[in-house]
Protein backbone atom coordinates (compact mmCIF):
# COMPACT_ATOMS: atom_id res chain seq x y z
CA UNK A 1 0.00 0.00 0.00
CA UNK A 2 1.44 3.37 -1.04
CA UNK A 3 1.92 6.28 1.27
CA UNK A 4 -1.23 8.19 2.20
CA UNK A 5 -0.91 11.95 2.48
CA UNK A 6 -2.84 13.48 5.37
CA UNK A 7 -3.98 17.09 5.63
CA UNK A 8 -5.85 18.26 8.70
CA UNK A 9 -7.62 21.60 8.36
CA UNK A 10 -8.93 23.19 11.54
CA UNK A 11 -10.60 26.40 12.57
CA UNK A 12 -13.80 27.84 13.96
CA UNK A 13 -17.34 27.49 12.60
CA UNK A 14 -17.96 30.12 9.91
CA UNK A 15 -14.33 30.37 8.73
CA UNK A 16 -15.04 28.41 5.57
CA UNK A 17 -13.16 25.20 6.38
CA UNK A 18 -15.74 23.02 4.63
CA UNK A 19 -15.50 24.69 1.23
CA UNK A 20 -11.72 24.98 1.38
CA UNK A 21 -11.35 21.30 2.20
CA UNK A 22 -13.87 20.39 -0.51
CA UNK A 23 -11.69 22.11 -3.10
CA UNK A 24 -8.64 20.29 -1.80
CA UNK A 25 -10.30 16.86 -1.89
CA UNK A 26 -11.75 17.47 -5.34
CA UNK A 27 -8.36 18.49 -6.74
CA UNK A 28 -6.90 15.27 -5.32
CA UNK A 29 -9.55 13.24 -7.14
CA UNK A 30 -9.05 15.15 -10.39
CA UNK A 31 -5.36 14.23 -10.21
CA UNK A 32 -6.35 10.58 -10.27
CA UNK A 33 -5.95 9.85 -6.57
CA UNK A 34 -8.23 7.99 -4.22
CA UNK A 35 -9.40 10.48 -1.62
CA UNK A 36 -11.53 10.65 1.50
CA UNK A 37 -12.56 13.63 3.54
CA UNK A 38 -14.25 13.61 6.92
CA UNK A 39 -15.81 16.27 9.03
CA UNK A 40 -18.72 16.70 11.38
CA UNK A 41 -21.73 18.85 10.60
CA UNK A 42 -24.44 19.81 13.06
CA UNK A 43 -23.60 21.14 16.49
CA UNK A 44 -20.15 22.27 15.37
CA UNK A 45 -21.66 24.77 12.95
CA UNK A 46 -22.82 26.91 15.85
CA UNK A 47 -19.48 28.65 16.42
CA UNK A 48 -17.73 25.53 17.63
CA UNK A 49 -14.36 24.09 16.76
CA UNK A 50 -14.34 22.75 13.18
CA UNK A 51 -12.02 20.24 11.57
CA UNK A 52 -11.71 18.47 8.25
CA UNK A 53 -9.56 15.43 7.58
CA UNK A 54 -8.36 15.01 3.99
CA UNK A 55 -6.53 11.85 3.00
CA UNK A 56 -5.35 10.89 -0.45
CA UNK A 57 -3.14 8.32 -2.12
CA UNK A 58 -3.43 5.17 -4.16
CA UNK A 59 -6.06 3.55 -1.92
CA UNK A 60 -7.49 5.21 1.18
CA UNK A 61 -9.39 3.19 3.78
CA UNK A 62 -10.06 5.26 6.87
CA UNK A 63 -11.65 8.68 6.38
CA UNK A 64 -9.98 9.87 9.59
CA UNK A 65 -6.33 10.61 10.26
CA UNK A 66 -4.67 8.86 13.19
CA UNK A 67 -3.12 10.94 15.92
CA UNK A 68 0.45 11.89 15.03
CA UNK A 69 -0.08 11.10 11.34
CA UNK A 70 -0.89 14.49 9.75
CA UNK A 71 1.59 15.54 7.06
CA UNK A 72 0.18 19.05 7.06
CA UNK A 73 -1.76 20.70 9.86
CA UNK A 74 -3.39 23.76 8.42
CA UNK A 75 -5.06 26.03 10.93
CA UNK A 76 -7.10 29.17 10.44
CA UNK A 77 -7.00 30.07 14.15
CA UNK A 78 -4.11 30.11 16.62
CA UNK A 79 -5.68 28.35 19.60
CA UNK A 80 -7.23 25.71 17.33
CA UNK A 81 -3.74 24.78 16.12
CA UNK A 82 -2.87 23.77 19.64
CA UNK A 83 -6.21 22.02 20.20
CA UNK A 84 -5.50 19.64 17.31
CA UNK A 85 -1.72 19.42 17.70
CA UNK A 86 -1.91 15.77 18.79
CA UNK A 87 -2.53 14.90 15.13
CA UNK A 88 0.88 16.37 14.25
CA UNK A 89 4.33 14.89 14.86
CA UNK A 90 7.72 16.62 14.89
CA UNK A 91 7.96 16.29 11.09
CA UNK A 92 4.50 17.70 10.35
CA UNK A 93 4.37 21.00 8.50
CA UNK A 94 2.17 23.28 10.58
CA UNK A 95 0.73 26.37 8.96
CA UNK A 96 -1.04 28.68 11.32
CA UNK A 97 -2.92 31.77 10.26
CA UNK A 98 -2.35 34.64 12.66
CA UNK A 99 -5.98 34.99 13.65
CA UNK A 100 -7.50 34.96 17.11
CA UNK A 101 -11.15 34.28 17.78
CA UNK A 102 -12.22 34.23 21.41
CA UNK A 103 -14.53 31.38 22.35
CA UNK A 104 -17.94 32.56 23.62
CA UNK A 105 -17.78 33.54 27.31
CA UNK A 106 -14.00 34.00 27.16
CA UNK A 107 -12.91 37.63 27.61
CA UNK A 108 -9.15 37.40 27.20
CA UNK A 109 -7.37 35.23 24.70
CA UNK A 110 -5.16 32.69 26.51
CA UNK A 111 -1.51 33.82 26.49
CA UNK A 112 1.48 31.87 25.24
CA UNK A 113 -0.25 29.92 22.48
CA UNK A 114 2.20 30.77 19.69
CA UNK A 115 5.21 30.17 21.95
CA UNK A 116 3.84 26.75 22.89
CA UNK A 117 3.31 25.80 19.23
CA UNK A 118 6.90 26.89 18.48
CA UNK A 119 8.18 24.91 21.45
CA UNK A 120 6.50 21.73 20.15
CA UNK A 121 7.32 22.06 16.48
CA UNK A 122 10.27 23.36 14.51
CA UNK A 123 8.22 23.20 11.33
CA UNK A 124 5.58 25.76 12.12
CA UNK A 125 4.92 28.74 9.85
CA UNK A 126 2.81 31.63 11.07
CA UNK A 127 1.07 33.53 8.31
CA UNK A 128 -0.21 37.07 8.63
CA UNK A 129 -3.43 37.18 6.58
CA UNK A 130 -3.28 40.96 5.95
CA UNK A 131 -0.55 41.08 3.26
CA UNK A 132 -2.29 38.21 1.45
CA UNK A 133 -5.65 39.96 1.56
CA UNK A 134 -4.03 43.08 0.07
CA UNK A 135 -2.81 41.07 -2.91
CA UNK A 136 -6.15 39.50 -3.78
CA UNK A 137 -9.32 40.93 -5.27
CA UNK A 138 -11.70 40.16 -2.42
CA UNK A 139 -10.95 39.13 1.15
CA UNK A 140 -13.57 36.41 0.75
CA UNK A 141 -11.05 34.63 -1.49
CA UNK A 142 -8.49 34.33 1.33
CA UNK A 143 -9.15 30.64 1.92
CA UNK A 144 -8.59 29.86 -1.76
CA UNK A 145 -5.30 31.78 -1.59
CA UNK A 146 -4.35 29.66 1.41
CA UNK A 147 -5.26 26.53 -0.53
CA UNK A 148 -2.88 27.81 -3.20
CA UNK A 149 -0.21 28.05 -0.55
CA UNK A 150 -0.66 24.49 0.69
CA UNK A 151 -0.90 23.26 -2.90
CA UNK A 152 2.88 23.61 -2.86
CA UNK A 153 3.14 20.64 -0.51
CA UNK A 154 1.31 18.23 -2.81
CA UNK A 155 1.69 17.46 -6.47
CA UNK A 156 -1.61 17.98 -8.24
CA UNK A 157 -1.67 19.49 -11.70
CA UNK A 158 -2.84 23.08 -12.21
CA UNK A 159 -5.71 21.68 -14.30
CA UNK A 160 -6.91 19.65 -11.29
CA UNK A 161 -6.88 22.73 -9.08
CA UNK A 162 -8.55 24.86 -11.70
CA UNK A 163 -11.31 22.32 -12.25
CA UNK A 164 -11.88 21.86 -8.50
CA UNK A 165 -12.06 25.61 -7.84
CA UNK A 166 -14.39 26.15 -10.78
CA UNK A 167 -16.75 23.47 -9.44
CA UNK A 168 -16.81 24.75 -5.88
CA UNK A 169 -16.74 28.56 -5.80
CA UNK A 170 -19.90 30.65 -6.32
CA UNK A 171 -20.74 31.42 -9.92
CA UNK A 172 -19.02 34.50 -11.32
CA UNK A 173 -16.17 34.41 -8.78
CA UNK A 174 -13.91 31.89 -10.51
CA UNK A 175 -11.48 34.41 -12.01
CA UNK A 176 -10.92 36.22 -8.72
CA UNK A 177 -10.56 32.96 -6.85
CA UNK A 178 -8.15 31.55 -9.41
CA UNK A 179 -5.97 34.65 -9.13
CA UNK A 180 -6.09 34.26 -5.33
CA UNK A 181 -5.02 30.63 -5.71
CA UNK A 182 -2.04 31.64 -7.87
CA UNK A 183 -1.11 34.35 -5.37
CA UNK A 184 -1.05 31.72 -2.64
CA UNK A 185 0.95 29.37 -4.82
CA UNK A 186 3.59 32.05 -5.42
CA UNK A 187 3.69 32.77 -1.73
CA UNK A 188 4.54 29.13 -1.14
CA UNK A 189 7.57 29.56 -3.42
CA UNK A 190 8.69 32.63 -1.49
CA UNK A 191 8.15 31.17 1.96
CA UNK A 192 9.02 27.53 1.67
CA UNK A 193 11.53 27.09 -1.14
Amino acid sequence: MGKIFNVLMVGVGGQGIIMASDIFALAAMHSGKDVKKSEIHGMSQRGGSVFSHIRFGEKVYSPVISKGEADVLFSLEEMETLRWIEYANTETTIICLKTRINPGMVETYPPGIDEEIKRLSKKVFFLDPQPIIEKIENKKFLNVALIGLISGFVHFSDESWEKAIREKVPRGTFEGNWQAFLTGKNLHREEFQ
Partner: peptide, 20 residues
Protein backbone atom coordinates in the same frame (compact mmCIF):
# COMPACT_ATOMS: atom_id res chain seq x y z
CA UNK B 1 4.82 2.13 12.63
CA UNK B 2 2.85 4.33 15.00
CA UNK B 3 3.94 7.95 15.17
CA UNK B 4 3.69 9.89 18.38
CA UNK B 5 1.50 12.94 18.32
CA UNK B 6 2.67 16.21 19.86
CA UNK B 7 1.29 16.95 23.29
CA UNK B 8 0.68 20.32 24.84
CA UNK B 9 0.45 21.01 28.54
CA UNK B 10 -1.59 24.15 28.07
CA UNK B 11 -5.27 23.60 28.78
CA UNK B 12 -7.35 25.51 26.29
CA UNK B 13 -10.75 27.02 26.96
CA UNK B 14 -13.35 24.84 25.24
CA UNK B 15 -15.20 26.17 22.23
CA UNK B 16 -18.65 24.75 22.73
CA UNK B 17 -21.35 25.48 20.17
CA UNK B 18 -23.63 28.30 21.23
CA UNK B 19 -26.82 30.04 20.18
CA UNK B 20 -25.94 32.30 17.23
Amino acid sequence: EAKTGLKTEISLPPRPPSLC
